[in-house]
Design a protein around this nucleic acid. Structure first.
Lengths: 158, 158
DNA sequence: GCTGAAAAAGACTGTTC
DNA sequence: GAACAGTCTTTTTCAGC
């Protein structure tokens, strides 16, 4: 599980394997081999290499946020006036620490950062927001509340 | 794998199991049992129930977008003037069809939708954008380009 | 690099406490 | 419910092509 040893050239079989794994990673090697039109050993060798190359980062379960009492999702647009290294360090550290922040991107353009945050309810968001602005100075925050998840996938197009 | 048979009450052990699975779903039952301070049989029974109840939705692999030539990520804010059922149907169908759309939410407030889109490069985004506005009439689109992924997790806080 | 087989590990079932 | 033991599937390794 090295970071990026080399950029691997993926052939059609590799891609078919990755596609099958993205759909369901609990399938047996036999099933995957059948689906991709190959057999056990080559599929196994390729999966091992894709893992080592870091193309496959990890294997995980996707949970239902509703069932876990995290039914509320916000996208948060953050503008800041501060751009020194010290401020950014603290801001990034704060985001990484907070488990309700599922995604954080630094952006090009007017908006500096976007966050995806999952909380139990609006009150939970407010608590997160208050804690965040206590930690770091922020110029402007716009919270976009998700009313409905139209689509949600981890599957990259291959 | 039923949709939502009943809302299950999760106890501390369930949560520890889910936490372990979110970190690494390829671990053996024995490993998980050891981590959560239990043993094989109860852990297995609970995982089966969590699956059936839909708390565990699926098991998948997380791939490296860079390695697959999808290094460019946009968040797209969509405003529309049209709110009839027919338009919305076509819009949602268009989003669901397009594999480069990884997430789509309907929002409360001024911005109507937010999309997360992964493409090879800016040109790829333009192709997506042109195709989208050809399919459905959209009032206003703002594309936010991600410069850096600060954080990216599928793990819900438990 | 593939095939096929054999060994090792782990998942799943049922019976008992 | 949980422990245990047994079976059966799947993973993993390896020799031969």
């Amino acid at each position: 599980m090295v970071d990026h040893p080399e950029l691997p050239d993926l052939d059609a079989l590799d891609r078919r394997i990755l596609r099958a794994l993205q759909v369901d990673a609990s399938q047996s090697l036999d099933e995957i081999a059948r689906q991709v039109g190959s057999s056990k050993t080559p599929v196994w060798n390729r999966i091992r290499k894709l893992r080592e190359a870091g193309v496959i980062r990890r294997q995980t379960v996707i949970l239902d946020p509703q069932a876990l009492g995290l039914g509320t999702c916000f996208f948060v647009l953050v503008r800041t006036s501060e751009h020194e290294a010290g401020w950014q360090q603290r801001f990034l550290a704060a985001l990484r620490e907070r488990p309700e922040v599922l995604e954080a991107h630094r952006l090009a353009g007017e908006v500096d950062y976007i966050l995806k945050v999952r909380v139990p309810d609006a009150k939970g968001y407010d608590a997160f927001y208050q804690a965040l602005i206590r930690d770091v100075r922020i110029f402007d925050v716009t919270a976009l509340l998700s009313m409905e998840e139209i689509k949600e996938t981890t599957a990259l197009p291959l």
